[in-house]
């Protein structure tokens, strides 16, 4: 028989394979060579140090938004608001980066801390409304995303610049980039944020699996009523889960602000880091280690996709279709489970 642990590993793997197969079929039916396409994708993601650096850079915020959504999921909440929390964290980090004069060892942590608080606050509002008024967090976070988009655009134009479309650059002491690292990875945009993301993944694992706080959060996620009955405060745990989830996404924004870009620019629409984070969390089965692996996969897909048009003629959007198909299969794991069990029965 299949154990549930085996299922948890099989389902993401099968989903990824299905996604890649669908991608290959699409390439074939539009007259592209799928082998050329995937080779270009692979080389574009891991071909040399520059591409590897870019893949790491792309994966960093995805790990964090993935953790954000996975963390909320484990507590029985769906944080669609990572998108907005990224904006708020980004703008907060850049604000600290521009307006303070501090030594590096204080400036960087302070900027990240403020970003996590800002993101946490953005998660707190839907958490509060969920806990006290029973409002579904999905809708509130969608609304909060738009508010974040417009408010940060307003702040960039009026607070962080004088009517410009980009903020000033952050001070060198707030930057996560370093010359040595940039040089090592062929002058890509890679930065130290990757280490921070990994540390936070470890932190999430520890918090959820090894502490009382995590135990309560998971208990509320499994069964609110049982948790309440055994004396846990469901309301407090809902709020805390959303604050922590928001904080993770806020740090993802800080990675963009302090690492990748070093400034913030006005957005016409979303960064998609939040929505891709949903894919990351799902594929990673809402675990810390799973989110890290899934984020690296999606980061590689997104960065590698950029080499597909010049080398194989395939539009980059093919990768978006592949990712959508992967999520689709993970979401429909019920059917994969059913087919696998059927298969197993047939063998007997």
């Amino acid at each position: 028989m299949f154990s549930s642990r085996l299922f948890n590993i099989l389902i993401p793997v099968i989903s990824v394979v299905m996604g890649l197969i669908v991608g290959a079929i699409i390439m074939l039916s539009f007259g592209y060579n799928p082998i050329e396409g995937y080779v270009a994708l692979w080389n574009g993601a891991f071909g040399n140090m520059y591409f590897l650096g870019e893949t790491i850079r792309q994966s960093t915020p995805l790990i964090l938004t993935g953790l954000s959504i996975a963390f909320a999921f484990r507590s029985g909440l769906f944080n669609i608001g990572a998108e907005g929390q990224v904006f708020i964290g980004w703008v907060a980090a850049v604000w600290v980066g521009i307006n303070f004069d501090l030594p590096l060892v204080i400036h960087v942590p302070l900027a990240i801390l403020i970003a996590s608080l800002a993101g946490g606050f953005w998660g707190f509002i839907p958490g509060l409304l969920k806990a006290t008024r029973g409002v579904h967090e999905v809708i509130v976070t969608i609304m909060m995303n738009y508010i974040a988009l417009h408010v940060t655009n307003y702040m960039i134009r009026n607070v962080l610049s004088e009517n410009g479309d980009t903020s000033e650059r952050i001070k060198e002491t707030a930057s996560l980039r370093s010359d040595g690292l940039t040089e090592l990875f062929g002058y890509s945009q890679v930065h130290w944020g990757f280490i921070i993301a990994l540390i936070l993944a470890l932190f999430m694992w520890f918090l959820l699996e090894k502490t009382t706080i995590g135990y309560e959060l998971r208990a509320v996620g499994y069964n609110k009523h049982a948790a309440h009955y055994s004396g846990m405060s469901v309301k407090r745990n809902i709020m805390m889960a959303m604050i922590i989830a928001g904080a993770f996404a806020g740090v993802a924004g800080a990675m963009e602000g302090l690492g990748t870009f070093g400034y913030m620019y006005t957005h016409a629409s979303y960064t998609n880091l939040g929505f891709d984070g949903i894919a990351v969390a799902l594929l990673g089965a809402n675990t810390a280690i799973g989110s890290v692996l899934a984020a690296i996969l999606f980061g590689a897909l997104k960065v590698g996709a950029l080499r597909m048009p010049p080398l194989a003629g395939v539009p980059t959007e093919l990768v978006d279709i592949v990712i959508a198909v992967i999520i689709f299969f993970v979401a429909s794991s019920y059917i994969i489970r059913w087919v696998l069990l059927r298969f197993k029965k047939g063998e007997r």
């Binding site: 978006d320 959508a324 429909s332």
Partner: peptide
């Protein structure tokens, strides 16, 4: 039919639509 999480399936629809639309426009 597949009892999928409806929000997640909706997110997949959104990604798929933009991906497919722009892919075809490019093609």
């Amino acid at each position: 039919t597949f009892h999928a999480n409806q929000v997640v399936s909706g997110v997949a629809i959104n990604m798929m639509a933009v991906g497919l639309g722009i892919f075809l426009i490019h093609d």
